[in-house]
């Protein structure tokens, strides 16, 4: 079926799809912020982040604000393109 070929397996999970949606419209989002937006527990989110990082879809920045560690995430160019393609796949499926 047309459209299915554009879908990306990496975005099969709704958590990963949601995570990408957040990162597409924001620069450097913190772990805590993502967790709250997606309403998730720690362990759950971490594995999805790892999966996306393995695909080089997102990049990670670790820094310290005072004494507190702060981890933030940003989407890469590869991730952005993959996500756009995935969305056009979804659109084709809907518009049939």
């Amino acid at each position: 079926m047309e459209g299915f070929d554009l879908l990306n397996k990496a975005f099969d999970s709704r958590v990963r799809l949601g995570l990408m949606s957040i990162l597409i419209v924001n620069q450097w989002v913190s772990y805590k912020e993502i967790k709250n937006l997606l309403d998730l527990t720690d362990g759950n989110l971490a594995s999805h982040i790892q999966a996306l990082e393995k695909n080089n879809f997102i990049e990670i920045k670790k820094q310290f604000i005072g004494k507190k560690p702060l981890t933030t995430y940003r989407v890469t160019k590869i991730g952005e393109n993959a996500f756009k393609q995935h969305i056009s796949g979804l659109e084709k499926l809907i518009n049939k």
């Binding site: 799809l17 949601g18 957040i22 937006l37 979804l90």
Partner: peptide
């Protein structure tokens, strides 16, 4: 999925 994407964005 599209709904979820829009909502989170």
């Amino acid at each position: 999925d599209i709904g979820l994407i829009k909502d989170l964005m």
